[in-house]
């Protein structure tokens, strides 16, 4: 007599067959499609409009693809659009933004990572209080600090300059970045730090030889956070830059789009908006990959 359990094995095998058009799938994909459309449609309109000439834009068929593709609006947005007296397009703002973002990002990450390292590994009397005060800084609304900040920069003689804005960005990035680095360094076993001390490494020796090589992922995270944050900043750009020549890209974009003189060139505006958003987008694509690789590389068991 064949055993019952053996008989059961002789039945159908493999995973349970799935119905493609179950009500669950219809619901799921239906929702996903609707949501994607919601986000894709504006992008579609922007791209299409930016590739049309003004006569075609005026026809008002905003969803239709261009009958005649032209890259003129992109060229104009980049190098010819006028803001105030300057008629060299967004390119000026782009280079201003680069000059603001690069030093701000580097400076803030260097200072914050050393801060976090000192706060977790070289605790001094009152280091916890210091940290609490620093974190508290991230809960105070920016508006409260704007005016005192302007006065301070004015007294230092760097109000309105790119240097001033770099300092402002570095300071305002400090609470969240320090928290980020401190918490990451806290996850590195304390015994590694102790071993390095017995091995005669000092403050900087341990930072550069032990902590840095183990912290690539968190540096990438900080990089993404800072580049996108500072590049997209509008408020500080308006407040702390006094000369139109020095405006970052976001402020300049605003000035182009909101100019009240002449005809509204929707195609140029669309192109300008996308040009401005391009940098954070590229950062996401590149560092997203790096980020994953960083995590994988750091996954060495101690």
């Amino acid at each position: 007599m064949v055993d019952a359990s053996v008989n059961a094995m002789a039945g159908p095998r493999g995973s349970k067959p799935q119905r493609r058009f179950s009500s669950r799938n219809l619901m799921l994909y239906g929702t996903l499609i609707v949501v994607s459309l919601y986000y894709i449609l504006p992008l579609w309109v922007m791209v299409m409009t930016s590739l049309k000439g003004m006569p075609e834009v005026r026809l008002g068929n905003i969803f239709g693809p261009p009958l005649e593709v032209t890259f003129q609006p992109w060229v104009k947005a980049w190098s010819e659009a006028c803001t105030g007296l300057n008629c060299d397009g967004l390119s000026r703002g782009f280079w201003n933004s680069v000059q603001i973002t690069v030093p701000s990002v580097i400076l803030s990450i260097i200072v914050a990572s050393v801060n976090g390292y000192a706060l977790i590994n070289w605790r001094f009397k009152g280091s916890e209080v210091f940290f609490t005060i620093l974190i508290f800084g991230s809960f105070i609304p920016y508006q409260v600090m704007l005016y005192p900040m302007v006065v301070m920069l004015r007294e230092m003689g760097i109000y309105g300059t790119l240097t001033g804005l770099v300092i402002v960005h570095t300071i305002f990035g400090m609470p969240i970045l320090t928290l980020l680095f401190r918490n990451y360094f806290a996850s590195i076993p304390e015994e590694l730090f102790k071993a390095a001390r017995v091995d005669g490494a000092g403050f900087w020796g341990i930072y550069f030889n032990i902590m840095l090589p183990m912290s690539l992922p968190i540096f990438v995270v900080a990089l993404i956070l800072q580049i996108t944050g500072i590049w997209n900043d509008f408020l500080f750009g308006v407040v702390f830059i006094s000369k139109a020549d020095n405006y970052p890209m976001t402020v300049q974009l605003n000035n182009i789009v909101n100019s009240v003189q002449g005809v509204k060139e929707y195609n140029v505006n669309m192109a300008a908006t996308m040009l401005t958003g391009l940098v954070p987008l590229i950062i996401y694509f590149i560092s997203g990959k790096l980020f994953v690789r960083g995590i994988a590389a750091g996954a060495v068991k101690g």
């Binding site: 102790k194 068991k301 101690g302």
Partner: peptide, 20 residues
């Protein structure tokens, strides 16, 4: 004195080897 100046060597529970 600093740990490195004491003439000691130390072995830790978690090995504490520098992973990189």
């Amino acid at each position: 004195a600093e740990p490195s100046d004491r003439g000691i060597g130390m072995v830790f529970q978690s090995y504490a080897l520098y992973p990189q």
